[in-house]
Amino acid sequence: MASVPESVSFGGRLPSFIGRRLTLRAGQELSARIVCFLCALACVLSTIGIVFILAKEAFTFFQAHSPVAFLTGTKWFPAADPPEYGVLPLICGTFLVTVVSGLVSIPLGLLVGVYLSEYAHFKVRKVLKPALELLAGIPSVVFGYLGLNLVTPLLQVFFPKIDATNALAGGIVVGIMTLPMVASLCQDAIAAVPKAMREAAYGLGSTKAEVTAKIVVPSALSGIVAAFILALSRAIGETMAVTIAAGATPKLTFNPAEEIQTMTAYIVNVSKGDVSRGSPEYQTIFAVGLTLFLLTLAMNLLAQRFVRRFRRGYA
């Protein structure tokens, strides 16, 4: 920029170094553009990297062990001799935790979202929103501690026979973790419903509850469903809280009071010991990781589809 007044002092004719400077500038411009493009490409590269690494190591694993046995096997004992690689117990553990977490986060999150958007005075909202953000910002490992030392002892009061680490406690803390996300996404979806729809319903003599439950929530349904799916997908990928609170025993059970192991917890437990590269255990975590990745990806794509449908409705 400083070069502009400089050129003025040379009179009418454009000196040659300014021409050079302009080409230099054009070169700079182009290289800046290329550097920025490469940085944007970093995201694409990491996606490719994830898919490639997971697929490569999982492929080596599946060459030695049949994928069908992996997906349908009901026993997961990778350290036993002979080892058993049936992923169903891990999937079942993840499923249990996810269902319990959904039972906590979905109804509570939806009601809090409705409250925030339809009922709360703006002063209340000003306090409630940061409180929820605070809850959302607490790291996963903290929820693990609370699941183990607060939720399980509380559960033991009602169910004395419950295991010290159990799917129920793990699911409850993961539900609390995802609650702020459900609440805030539901609030956004509900707030986007046009005011005219509410007013039309009020004009016909509806009460506030009727307007909310029969008009507003059904209109925002695809956004709300997207919030639910995202919460469940986060619960599937949640790691530290379930590693600590839900246990380390892969088990094919539907009883949430028992100790289980999720896919994520298995990966952590293997990684905690130094795994040597190329060992069968090293490859199992990639096979499990691939399963986890595909599962969450499918759910996220589903959620995005719902969000798009919602946007088409009102935007």
Partner: peptide, 14 residues
């Protein structure tokens, strides 16, 4: 939306 632990596996591999 990818679970954080999957990034760890990318890091382990790369």
């Amino acid at each position: 939306g990818v679970p954080s632990i999957v990034f760890g596996m990318l890091g382990l591999g790369v």
